[in-house]
Simulated scan of single mutants.
Amino acid sequence: METRLWTANLITRDEPPLSAAQLTTLAAAQDWRGIADALPDDPTQTGSPTEEPTPAQGDGKAIRQTLASLIPKGLEVVAHGSDDSDQFTYVVVDDGRGRSLVQINVQPDMGDVAGDLFGSGSETLADGTRVAERQQPGEKGGSGVVMWTVDTLRTDGFRVVVSAFDSGSQQTAATRTAPALTMKQLRAIALSPKWRS
């Protein structure tokens, strides 16, 4: 007996949410290495849940502490978390006018994708650091969420990219008129010398 799978072809937007350059950047992200390294050799062996995390499965605690120390005064950190790598973390802040998600990625050895990340609208500082600023719809889209991002790349390939949203989550509708941090504040966080320590 032949089984057929029927799908509905619904067009919900004129353009895909990510450009070809953004997809290339996503596919080439160093984060995938950490995820791949964390997978067990035998997929049926997931390990004990009481195992201590390895460096590739770090909890991002140092990055989160640094990020929290750079959050401007007047913003209260009300939640936080991270993925299974030691490069990504987030905090949720509230200034009394609603929650705002702030996420950060700290990555070494990213110089090989500089051409994809920093186009004609980017700038180069006196020390050679590349800086790109973007204001665009949130990655999940569809709920009015906006994402403000400052992306930086030092001359040795050390990348810090920080984003703020006008919601406490990418999966929920906007709860504010703008992210709780300004572009200037995001820039100060991304360029802070604290990331080197």
Score class of each variant (00 low, 15 high):
A8Q: 12
A8I: 15
N9T: 13
T12A: 14
P16A: 13
P17G: 04
A21N: 05
T25H: 11
A27M: 10
A27D: 07
Q30P: 05
D31M: 12
A36S: 07
P40D: 13
T44W: 13
Q45V: 15
G47V: 13
P55I: 09
D59E: 05
G60Q: 06
A62P: 00
R64M: 10
Q65V: 01
L67T: 04
S69R: 01
G74P: 03
V77D: 01
H80A: 14
H80Y: 04
S82Y: 00
S82E: 05
V91C: 08
V91R: 08
V91W: 03
V93E: 08
R97T: 14
G98I: 07
G98P: 04
R99E: 15
V102R: 03
I104R: 11
N105H: 09
N105M: 09
V106K: 00
Q107W: 12
Q107T: 12
V113W: 06
A114S: 11
A114G: 08
G115K: 03
L117Y: 02
F118G: 00
G121L: 08
E123K: 13
T124K: 07
A126E: 12
A126P: 01
R130T: 02
R130W: 09
Q135R: 10
Q135M: 08
G138P: 08
G141Q: 15
V146R: 10
D156I: 04
G157S: 07
F158H: 14
F158V: 05
R159I: 02
S163V: 05
A164F: 00
A164V: 03
D166Q: 02
S169W: 05
Q170Y: 10
Q171R: 12
Q171M: 14
T175G: 15
A178P: 02
L181V: 03
T182N: 08
T182Q: 08
T182C: 10
M183F: 01
K184M: 06
Q185F: 10
Q185S: 10
I189A: 03
A190I: 00
P193K: 00
P193V: 04
K194D: 08
W195M: 09
R196E: 15
S197K: 12
S197H: 10
